[in-house]
């Protein structure tokens, strides 16, 4: 479902003397439907960079990033937009929403974007919020005022609202209590059962061991630094 082949990434800092910083070289991985792969490596080794490249958030310098039948490294913006709408979900560590929009709507939005009827989308959103123990009195409020853990759960609800065939999870269990951590891990397991291909970053080793089938150390893709 997700195939990364020989991907390189450099950052060129035009405003700092045009410094070119290679950050990734020869990155390759494959994730089959129903499989969950964890990216590991020390801080700064490029886990997030690789994940962002798969999402199309960072541009790959070369190589192939195939998600379904779309090569994210080469696709036109509208192809990536369609991919993100229908195929590829992403749970980031940060919640980025229009202020003032109620939590229910934030979670339902991916479904509305797919054309689901409003009432159905809200029902699904509410079910997820309930499952993730967001108190009902908060549903009408904007998540921008929520605590870190609550925002994290809203983000997860949003990421799991639509049953994406491919999912990227960036620290989905960080800053969660035991109960909610369990809910999230169950959600991930369910997604695997229905055949989702998942790439994740987990600092929570226990969680990683429980849901991930394989581990890929991105340190192997880190170019030798020229000092």
């Amino acid at each position: 479902m997700i195939t990364v082949e020989n991907v390189t990434k450099t950052f060129t800092l035009h405003n700092q003397g045009g410094a070119v910083i290679p950050v990734m070289e020869g990155a390759s991985l494959t994730v089959a439907p129903g499989e969950c792969v964890a990216l590991v490596g020390a801080s700064g080794s490029g886990k997030s960079t690789l994940m962002r490249m798969i999402y199309g958030n960072y541009l790959a310098a070369s190589g192939v990033i195939a998600v379904g039948d779309v090569d994210v490294a080469r696709a036109a913006p509208r192809e990536i937009l369609a991919l993100r709408r229908e195929v590829l979900g992403y749970v980031s560590q940060f919640l980025r929403v229009v202020p003032r929009v109620p939590t229910r709507e934030v979670v339902a939005e991916p479904l509305l974007a797919l054309g689901m009827a409003r009432a159905d989308a809200l029902v699904r959103a509410e079910a997820l919020l309930a499952q993730l123990n967001i108190p009902e009195r908060l549903w009408e409020l904007s998540p921008t005022t929520f605590s870190g853990g609550e925002q994290q759960r809203v983000n997860i609800a949003r990421g799991f609202a639509h049953e994406y065939p491919a999912l990227l999870l960036d620290e989905p269990t960080a800053s969660l209590d035991a109960v909610n951590r369990e809910v999230v891990l169950t959600l991930i397991e369910r997604a695997k059962e229905r055949g989702a291909a998942i790439v994740g970053i987990f600092h929570d080793v226990e969680a990683r061991d429980r849901v991930c089938d394989r581990v890929i150390d991105v340190t192997g893709f880190t170019p030798a630094r020229v000092a």
Binding site: F11, H14, N15, G56, N57, L59
Partner: peptide, 22 residues
């Protein structure tokens, strides 16, 4: 520069965009 909004803002390629974003 053109591209997906989040890509241009998070991984700007052109010097001017980098300046703008920073």
């Amino acid at each position: 520069e053109t591209g997906l909004t989040d890509q241009v803002l998070d991984d700007p390629q052109h010097g001017y965009t980098q300046l703008l974003v920073s």
